[in-house]
Design a protein around this nucleic acid. Structure first.
Lengths: 236, 236
DNA sequence: ACAAAAACATTGCTTAAACAATATTTTTGC
DNA sequence: GCAAAAATATTGTTTAAGCAATGTTTTTGT
């Protein structure tokens, strides 16, 4: 049942049912959703959608990982959030403005389930519990955004980098060796913490020396999350 | 029809109909809403709700102005947004967590229309177009939050202060003399821009000297908004 | 009306963190 | 498989912006 789509991506069936869409819509709609949705595949580093592009719909990350980021002047960007499978992407497009306010890029080979804006609208207007859940999700996202605003504005860089590591740990978890299950570049750590590669490099080195983290290439192991939290909470 | 309430505030009728609640709910509900809502009055500097407090409901600012702010370690706070009449306050409380993630404080003598969480829930589950509008509002707020996250992380302070002045201009407008219609303390400008009183003081002085703004006590007049925008866009 | 508390004004000093420079290693596209 | 482009490593310099100190003015509570 792999139907070839115009962009060469296959339409695959969704077996996990773990995404926001699948777990929050009424069962009666499952089939219609299945017919309307498109499974899209992205290579590592591939753009899922780009800031400024016209909004076409919403994505539910089915497999893999992605970063949501926002550009500022060429060369500067802030990573807004790191996402894992099950997460929503592109939901900000729902606001009146019809272009994506952020970009999303796959961090690993990924699959996402795509729902067009028009169908989403129908869905929202019909399935009110879904609509209510989405509202709650938004309120939660807003809270997170405000927490981050505060951190970016008031914490010093070391704290922000510590927070970034903890966030990565929280989002991606660890593998059997205890390393964060996602190879992340220092560049991306800098882009999330709102700092620079060099600062991340220097601070990571001191963390390594004091044995709070272990680094092996792009893999990072956090030995003492509580100590990192302490650094974050005391950086002012 | 001024009914005395337990806290001494009067229940007043709402005549403006300009708030989100009044302009986005179905006419049939107007009377029920009128019966359920409570008009609350706040003195300048008075707390509308406080971070960490149990969420009791949502406020619609009917008259006056307020700031929404978030604390970090004693003494440090970030002002998340400035609000004017018609604006929503306390909507973040809708997320699962049952405490306000931010505080709101009246900047001037204000009146707000209060709706309890339980009634809001009923409203959302019944009036779906209201629910949809609120969803759009949230998406918009999320966009703004992300824009600010980016600015706080990547812009240098001068640009952030310039942005703050432009934001104040945009939210509160000007009086006949061209001054921003809201007396704002330098402390609050610092708290919004994520900087310090001294830095605001210094930068405001240079803006005054270069004639981009005029200052008279707590009143600020922006002579050249475009120049301020330019400063903001070039601060990196 | 008056004391206490904020807010304001002003200035140096200090430092965290960006910037710059340069060399090496890893990744990726054709 | 190789060249080009990212990403990494490292250290030194510079500067923006916070902190500290001290005094004055304005606001606010009683």
């Amino acid at each position: 049942m792999a139907i070839l789509m115009k962009n060469g991506n296959e339409s695959l069936t969704c077996e996990k049912n773990h995404c926001f869409l699948c777990s929050n819509t009424i069962p009666e709609w499952k089939e219609i959703i299945a017919a309307k949705k498109k499974m899209v595949r992205f290579k590592k580093g591939e753009t899922i959608f780009k800031e400024g592009e016209k909004v076409t719909g919403i994505y539910f990350l089915y497999e893999g990982a992605a970063k949501v980021h926002k550009q500022w002047i060429e060369e500067k960007e802030l990573i807004i959030r790191f996402t894992r499978e099950g997460d929503i992407l592109g939901h900000r497009g729902l606001a009146s403005g019809d272009t994506y306010p952020v970009s999303a890029t796959a961090l690993t080979e990924s699959k996402a389930c795509f729902i067009s804006s028009s169908f989403l609208e129908t869905l929202l207007k019909t399935d009110h519990s879904f609509s209510y859940r989405l509202l709650q999700f938004y309120a939660q996202e807003l809270q997170k955004a405000e927490m981050r605003m505060r951190n970016l504005a008031l914490m010093e860089v070391k704290g922000r980098i510590a927070e970034t590591l903890l966030e990565l740990l929280q989002v991606y978890g660890t593998n059997k060796e205890g390393f964060i299950s996602m190879a992340i570049t220092r560049q991306d750590i800098a882009a999330y913490s709102g700092s620079t590669y060099e600062t991340v490099f220097k601070f990571l080195k001191t963390l390594e020396i004091s044995n709070l983290v272990a680094v092996s290439g792009k893999s990072i192991k956090i030995n003492d999350p509580a100590a990192l939290k302490k650094i974050a909470d005391h950086s002012h």
